[in-house]
Amino acid sequence: MITIYHNTRCKKSREGLQKVEASGKEYKIREYLKDELSEEELLSLIEKLNIAPILLVRKNEKIWKENYKNKDLSDRELITVMAKNPKLIERPIVETETEAVIGRPVEEIDKLL
């Protein structure tokens, strides 16, 4: 089963959802701003993405710039920050049982489909 971590207000996220829908594969949508991810879920997702947590942070968000930009945060602290502020999580993310990709550019999603 494919999961797409989706923000309905984001154009790139909507494009990612269209790509997943067009694949014809079974999927579910997780609106992570409403159904927030726990720190454990974020850690698992980051492991599947095979990236450092900082690469999942949306650094242009106001909350990042005002509260975290110039702080030296550990990976664990970054995960805590994202769990408490899901708006900071890059989107869309598409996940399978074994791997995940950030859909930026949207063509990255093809790797899982």
Results as ranks from 00 to 15, higher is better:
residue 27 Y to H: 11
residue 34 K to I: 07
residue 21 E to K: 15
residue 21 E to M: 14
residue 35 D to F: 09
residue 37 L to K: 15
residue 20 V to L: 10
residue 28 K to I: 02
residue 37 L to E: 11
residue 5 Y to E: 01
residue 32 Y to D: 03
residue 17 L to C: 11
residue 15 E to P: 01
residue 17 L to N: 11
residue 38 S to K: 09
residue 38 S to Y: 12
residue 19 K to A: 11
residue 33 L to F: 02
residue 7 N to L: 13
residue 27 Y to P: 12
residue 12 K to I: 06
residue 29 I to S: 06
residue 23 S to T: 02
residue 7 N to T: 03
residue 22 A to P: 05
residue 2 I to P: 06
residue 33 L to V: 05
residue 38 S to T: 15
residue 18 Q to W: 08
residue 10 C to Q: 05
residue 29 I to C: 08
residue 32 Y to L: 11
residue 35 D to A: 05
residue 21 E to P: 09
residue 13 S to P: 04
residue 6 H to N: 08
residue 37 L to Y: 13
residue 31 E to P: 01
residue 23 S to A: 07
residue 8 T to Q: 15
residue 2 I to E: 04
residue 30 R to A: 04
residue 22 A to L: 08
residue 32 Y to I: 07
residue 19 K to Q: 13
residue 10 C to F: 06
residue 37 L to C: 13
residue 36 E to H: 11
residue 18 Q to Y: 06
residue 7 N to Y: 12
residue 11 K to V: 02
residue 11 K to P: 00
residue 22 A to Y: 01
residue 29 I to W: 03
residue 22 A to H: 09
residue 39 E to H: 05
residue 12 K to Y: 04
residue 11 K to G: 06
residue 13 S to N: 04
residue 33 L to D: 07
residue 35 D to K: 09
residue 6 H to S: 05
residue 39 E to I: 12
residue 5 Y to A: 00
residue 4 I to K: 04
residue 7 N to H: 08
residue 35 D to V: 04
residue 30 R to T: 06
residue 3 T to N: 12
residue 15 E to N: 13
residue 6 H to M: 07
residue 26 E to V: 14
residue 16 G to C: 05
residue 24 G to M: 14
residue 39 E to W: 06
residue 4 I to D: 00
residue 8 T to I: 14
residue 3 T to R: 13
residue 30 R to V: 03
residue 31 E to K: 07
residue 30 R to C: 13
residue 25 K to Q: 13
residue 37 L to N: 15
residue 33 L to H: 06
residue 35 D to S: 05
residue 38 S to N: 04
residue 38 S to M: 09
residue 10 C to N: 10
residue 13 S to T: 01
residue 23 S to I: 05
residue 39 E to F: 11
residue 32 Y to A: 08
residue 24 G to D: 14
residue 26 E to C: 11
residue 24 G to V: 09
residue 3 T to Q: 15
residue 8 T to M: 13
residue 5 Y to P: 00
residue 33 L to C: 08
residue 14 R to A: 12
residue 28 K to P: 03
residue 27 Y to L: 12
residue 9 R to E: 14
residue 34 K to P: 04
residue 10 C to M: 02
residue 5 Y to C: 02
residue 25 K to I: 10
residue 33 L to G: 00
residue 3 T to V: 14
residue 29 I to L: 11
residue 4 I to W: 01
residue 9 R to S: 15
residue 36 E to F: 00
residue 18 Q to C: 06
residue 29 I to A: 03
residue 35 D to M: 07
residue 39 E to C: 12
residue 11 K to I: 07
residue 26 E to N: 15
residue 4 I to S: 02
residue 18 Q to V: 04
residue 28 K to L: 04
